[in-house]
């Protein structure tokens, strides 16, 4: 790795009250790379993502994005650079705001001009019809909502995208469309991504490298090729792979 990693996590611990949810986690993600975090529920994978995003206050260790160490509070510049897409497209859009208002919010916060043109372009980029612009979230389908969430994340041109199970609440046919969209956008905008999912096939589809988590720890970090070839060393990873093949039938 010649240049500095875009995201560097060293010895991260997260506590929720008295419970120790994430234990001594370290990994790094190169610029332009997509890194996967996979594990079962309660493994701490989403917590890691939310902690990087600044949504969890109680953590120790070192986290750096683009060479800058992250403190307990994130400044506006951080949110310009790092954005997140949440799991549930029904819950992540404000129910009383139109798509237009939702997309205008980041532009207003960051004082970005030409909102009109940017919103139109953002909708086009995620392949939403122009008619969706003044609708409320409840008037859209699950897939359309997730496209709105992606458009919101990208509208202020971030370089890092955190994806928290972005397709697990969607039907498989819609999942395919959203996954294709994500890989296109990643290509076009040179995004660095961290993708959290319980689905190994989804992780393998988008990520170059991945970390397998269990009980708040990373048990193994391996490449997509190693994953597909079944060259996993840890037994938990082997179990997950076996299960994934079994369910594929």
């Amino acid at each position: 790795m010649s240049q500095l990693p875009m995201i560097a996590i060293e010895h991260l611990d997260v506590h929720f009250g008295s419970s120790h949810v994430v234990r001594d986690i370290s990994f790094s993600v190169a610029a332009g790379e997509t890194f996967g975090l996979v594990g079962e529920s309660g493994s701490g994978k989403s917590t890691v993502l939310r902690t990087i995003a600044g949504l969890n206050p109680g953590w120790d260790g070192r986290m750096a994005v683009a060479g800058q160490n992250l403190g307990p509070r994130r400044d506006r510049a951080f949110f310009r650079r790092v954005q997140m897409v949440f799991q549930d497209p029904y819950g992540s859009l404000h129910p009383r705001q139109t798509v237009d208002r939702i997309l205008a919010e980041p532009l207003e916060v960051h004082g970005i001009a030409d909102a009109e043109a940017r919103i139109a372009r953002a909708l086009e980029e995620v392949a939403l019809p122009h008619t969706a612009r003044f609708r409320y979230p409840h008037q859209l389908s699950g897939g359309q909502r997730q496209r709105v969430a992606i458009a919101r994340a990208l509208i202020a041109d971030p370089s890092v995208l955190l994806l928290d199970e972005p397709t697990s609440a969607l039907d498989v046919s819609v999942q395919a469309e959203v996954l294709n969209l994500l890989s296109d956008l990643r290509e076009a905008r040179q995004l660095t991504c961290i993708l959290v999912s319980h689905n190994l096939a989804v992780i393998a589809h988008l990520c170059e490298r991945l970390a397998v988590m269990q009980g708040g720890r990373i048990v193994e970090i391996l490449s997509e090729a190693e994953l597909r070839a079944g060259r996993a060393k840890h037994s938990h990873t082997q179990d997950l792979i076996a299960l994934s093949y079994e369910l594929e039938g």
Binding site: A53, G54, F86, G91, H94, E105, V109, A149
Partner: peptide
């Protein structure tokens, strides 16, 4: 999540 998403805009 929608409030978390708003916080993520840096508001």
């Amino acid at each position: 999540d929608y409030i978390a998403a708003v916080r993520m805009t840096g508001a």
